[in-house]
């Protein structure tokens, strides 16, 4: 008996995944794979554009022209990264309009980390060093993700991202070499951002809703806990180097494992923040929706202009 058509398509999909090749938008893919990818890429895109806000907060108050130019370039990059990712999501058959609507109505999420405030300049250092550091840890394996447009967007993003972490660490180094007050400011920023950053990798593997399937489909290559460990191992020596203390009494090098042991993040806090009850959730969403609504006239004017030019061209041709 010949295999049904659907089985053939499934087999082909499985073969491409097993051979570590890429699935492209026109290829047949299981509906779950498509849905899972749309959810993940959209959440990633939303995080990039919401992520402009905590740093945007310091653009006008950066301490020097150099720092201001750097921060401006970084925030502009985040906008670009959002656009690359929306483009990748759209190849799966969802529109930009639908994606923004899902964000604005709270039906799709963005990263928990952007719901925390940035009260001091040192937060710009901590965000670049820790938050972008964590993002890079997450994103490097995504460059080999099984969906072609997502993987290619991640290659571009990772290339641009590498200065983001360095500029943040440089801010921390500068503060740590400064006055006692400046060093204290750096330490306080590390205290604020350490635990929320560890939560960026998502819930522990035992509770992660999407992890297993994503691993099977080679969308994800490492589990949440593996990536979290990688980040801790890379970051703790950097803190030591500049004389800052990671705010975790349980943190200790484990010779046997060849890794740092560290404490458990407050998962209730993560649940609360993801559910909408973080310190800045309401403000971030209000700013996002406000920007969208305030920009409506620009989008409408651009369409009106395009229509006018098209009509005039047609008139001349006639």
């Amino acid at each position: 008996m010949p295999a049904p058509a659907s089985e053939t398509r499934q087999n082909r999909f499985d073969r491409v995944i097993a051979a570590d090749q890429r699935i492209e938008p026109d290829d047949w893919m299981p509906e779950d794979y498509r849905k899972n990818l749309i959810r993940q890429i959209a959440q990633h895109a939303h995080s990039e554009i919401i992520g402009m806000q905590p740093e945007g907060n310091w653009l006008t108050r950066a301490p020097s022209l150099r720092r201001k130019s750097i921060l401006l370039a970084k925030v502009q990059d985040e906008a670009g990264h959002g656009l690359y990712l929306y483009g990748a999501a759209e190849t799966l058959g969802i529109t930009r309009h639908e994606l923004l609507d899902l964000l604005h109505t709270g039906r799709q999420k963005y990263a928990n980390i952007f719901n925390y405030p940035t009260p001091t300049w040192a937060d710009m250092g901590a965000i670049g060093w820790l938050v972008d550091g964590a993002a890079i840890t997450n994103q490097i394996p995504l460059c080999r993700c099984s969906f072609g447009p997502y993987a290619r967007a991640m290659v571009r993003i990772c290339k641009e991202e590498s200065f983001h972490q360095r500029q943040g660490f440089e801010i921390m180094v500068t503060l740590c070499n400064g006055t006692v007050e400046q060093k204290a400011m750096a330490q306080e920023a590390l205290n604020r951002w350490w635990w929320p950053t560890l939560m960026m990798f998502g819930p522990p593997d035992t509770e992660s809703a999407h992890s297993q399937k994503s691993m099977q489909w080679k969308i994800k290559r490492f589990t949440n806990d593996e990536l979290r460990q990688k980040f801790v191992d890379a970051t703790v020596p950097q803190a030591d180097l500049i004389g800052l203390t990671v705010p975790d009494p349980e943190l200790a090098w484990n010779d046997e494992r060849g890794h740092y042991d560290f404490g458990e993040p407050d998962w209730d806090e993560l649940r609360r923040v993801v559910a909408g009850d973080g310190p800045c959730n309401a403000e971030r969403m209000a700013t996002r929706k406000g920007a969208h609504d305030d920009g409506a006239w620009v989008r409408e004017a651009a369409v009106a202009h395009a229509e006018k030019v098209a009509a005039r061209t047609a008139e001349i041709a006639a």
Partner: peptide, 21 residues
């Protein structure tokens, strides 16, 4: 990659902003 735009001129401007920074 791709961009959204109402006409070719704005498409070029967006492409320049997004892909040649």
């Amino acid at each position: 990659g791709s961009v959204h735009a109402p006409d070719a001129e704005i498409a070029l401007q967006h492409a320049r902003d997004l892909f040649t920074r």
